[in-house]
Amino acid sequence: MLNIRWLAATSMAAVFMVSHVNTFAADAGNAVRGKTAYVKNGCWQCHGFVGQGGIAGPKLAPEPLPLAALSAFVRNSRGPMPPYMEAVLPNEELADIHAYLQSIPKAADYKSIPLLNQP
């Protein structure tokens, strides 16, 4: 319950501090390595193993934020998501995580899933 309240209360207040974006290689990360980094760094805990989101964190995939915005958020979050500093999560790993999130296919339209169209 607490989590619902935190989220409901603060999700609107999320501010991307884009001015603090770190500079790192713009090239795409590695999705396979990214999956490992995503698990190792605990992103799955709040966002689900395929970034689907839920009560503890919003969806990250499919169609993740661009790398720069994602990185700005992860480094500077002052809301309900605890920030990850470079010492813990290097830029290369974050780029890999981004590549992993990008590799996640789009979900089906709920209208095509009978179980989601029950009265």
């Binding site: 689900g48 193993f49 689907q52 989101g53 979900a107 089906a108 709920y110 179980l115 169209n117």
Partner: peptide, 21 residues
């Protein structure tokens, strides 16, 4: 409902799928 469709085929099973099955 669209949010529930995310990770619909994932394993381990998504909580939305668990609940709707």
């Amino acid at each position: 409902r669209q949010a529930a469709a995310l990770a619909w085929d994932a394993s381990p099973i998504s909580t939305a799928r668990l609940v709707m099955e």
